[in-house]
Amino acid sequence: MNLKLKIWRQENANSKGGFEEFQMKDVSVDSSFLEMLDQLNYQLEEEGKDPIHFDHDCREGICGMCSLYINGEPHGPTQTTTCQLHMRSFKDGDTIVIEPWRATAFPVVKDLVVDRTSFDNIIQAGGYISVNTGGTTSDANEILIPKEVANEAMDAATCIGCGACVAACKNASAMLFVSAKVSHLGLLPQGKVEAKKRAENMVAQMDAEGFGACTNTGACSAQCPKEISLTNIARLNREYLSAKFTSDNN
């Protein structure tokens, strides 16, 4: 298939950037979207031109490294990661517009590569259970956890931290990401101990990083490659409010 690509090019964080157009010929419908870009980069390198920089690593839809805002949708037209998007989702002759994630908290590094350190900062603010590695931790089966609860925690924990939620949200809000972590840990008995502090600190960090506010549009969940549910956001709201009004933390 033949395609026209409009791709965002930007030399570095401080330069202005703009779209550049490319014509692609003979792209296999079986190739993945990133393999199509590999093909383009191979051509560019052969011509001695700077290849397009984009983040990617596992190419199995789990590491969360790949991004790309494709034709108005993070990770493109199917609800999956860009690395799992295949060219059979497009038609011969299509024009494809590729942009980086856009958020003040995700500054562009180069071309389509953005800096998502803000997500790490949020996790560092409380996305953990405070236990040291222990040789004599109590037995794993000592605390029973209902299967339904474990499953719900797992569904939240499945978040890959790719940032598609932020990219999709008109407010560049990170609520789905934060709520997934707060839910995952808060649902489990082991994580309940510091649930209040966790919700308070992670929300404070989220705000400090410059993410927007959630206006419940649901675009995040609709675009999440791991289909993280909006109920997590409600849970975060609940946990945050109850923490703020009942915890001892001043």
């Binding site: 236990v131 794993a140 082991q190």
Partner: peptide, 14 residues
């Protein structure tokens, strides 16, 4: 034991 204490949501029985 360590992973469960850390909050790894392993699959559970009923």
């Amino acid at each position: 034991d360590q992973c469960v204490a850390q909050g790894v949501p392993f699959a559970r029985e009923y």
